[in-house]
Simulated assay, not measured.
Amino acid sequence: MTEKQIVVLGAGYAGLSAATRAGRRHRVTLIAPETRFLHRVRQHETAAGHPEHRPTLAEVTRGRGVRHVRARATGLDPAARKVFLDTGEAVAYDTLVYALGSRTAWHAVPGAERHAYPAERAAELGERLRTADRPGTVAVVGGGATGIELATEIAEAHPGWRVRIVAAGQVGGWFSARGRGHVRAVMARLGIEVHERSTVTEVDTGGLHTSGGRIPADVVVWAAAMEPHPLAAEAGLTVDPAGRALVDDHLRSVSHPEVYIIGDAAAVTVPGTGTLRMGCATALPMGGYVGKVLTGRTDKPFAFRYNLQCLSLGRRDALVQLIHGDDSMRPSILTGRTGRLIKAAIVNGVIWSLR
């Protein structure tokens, strides 16, 4: 073990992957407020009331030179190379791995943050659905992957609840025609009402106001968009208009090369692939790459190509969409039991891959 001070901010897919790999040869300080890993791609299961699959950070980092500091980062001084914590402590670093990820974006929609459940409150949402005096109506806002998984999981697990999905565009609109068709077929089977091209303008205790009219709901779930954590921008690191930090081909901040930025917090453009989207599929490889760089196992630029996209559609179905390396759609899909087994294998393999 060397005494080089490596600090990792964030214990998500990117941060944990970087910490466990760097911890093979260095002493690493991992700063995160939680004690258990948040398996974000399984939050729809938690929202539906299924058991959580969240190993402790100690389990994931066992056998590595990783010290977990249970705290939240409140400030960053790149000039002094210090991270400030909500405990009042300041942690110095030689190298910082910034992996604070993203959070639900409310886009200043009146009432949304007050009245809607974001994915971060999945457990609370699950309890609300389970303990309600009587079933009512759930409106899931967002036609992306998170919204689709939440809507189908809730509809299957709580058949007494009426589920609606509301999207500003087309639900699953980025998939191939066959992929979109399968998503719509599953939603029809589960009795999910689909409201497309309906922009939400306000959320209140009785539901949604949209560009297409009033949509009543007893419970509103917000899965419309994500935004990067603001700490990088507040600290003066160079960011793009969306707030994602700009990095070079080794995932170092273009303004502060002693800071590696990975996961949803980073705006990463790979030649031949394009600018990477947020998500587990890109965060894990970034974390693994930085871990290899810090242990001297590679000095090559970061490279990445896509293989597939997959969605859970309840416990009995899934969609695996085959894609080109640049994330564009192929016509082929896998569904049903085959798709579900592939999706389960990928999700279950994430914990193993973190190490």
Rank of each mutant, 00 (worst) to 15 (best):
T104L: 00
L208V: 11
D86H: 10
V186C: 07
P135D: 02
L208M: 08
G181N: 11
A155C: 11
I215E: 03
G181W: 00
T95M: 03
P110G: 06
A167F: 00
T87Y: 08
A90G: 07
A155M: 07
H115M: 07
G126A: 10
R178P: 04
W106D: 00
H182W: 06
T210D: 10
F175L: 13
A122W: 01
R162S: 13
V138D: 08
H158F: 09
I148P: 09
T146K: 02
V194I: 13
G136H: 10
Y117H: 14
A177C: 07
R121Y: 02
A188P: 07
A99W: 01
D218T: 14
A188S: 13
A139S: 10
V141Q: 08
E149P: 05
V166F: 05
L96T: 07
E120A: 13
I192H: 10
I215D: 14
A92V: 09
L208W: 08
M187I: 07
G88S: 05
G142T: 04
V171I: 14
E193I: 07
V109G: 09
G88T: 05
Y117E: 01
P118T: 02
G142R: 06
T146L: 03
L208P: 15
T104C: 06
H158Q: 10
A217F: 05
A151Q: 11
W161F: 15
P159R: 15
A105M: 00
E124Q: 12
G136M: 14
L96N: 14
E153V: 02
V200A: 04
V166T: 09
V91Y: 12
V138E: 04
L129E: 03
R134A: 15
D204S: 05
T152Y: 08
T199G: 04
G181M: 10
H209S: 15
H158Y: 13
E193G: 15
V138L: 03
E193P: 13
E124W: 00
Y98L: 14
D133R: 12
A119E: 01
A139M: 12
V91P: 14
H107V: 04
P135C: 03
E127Y: 00
G160V: 06
F175C: 08
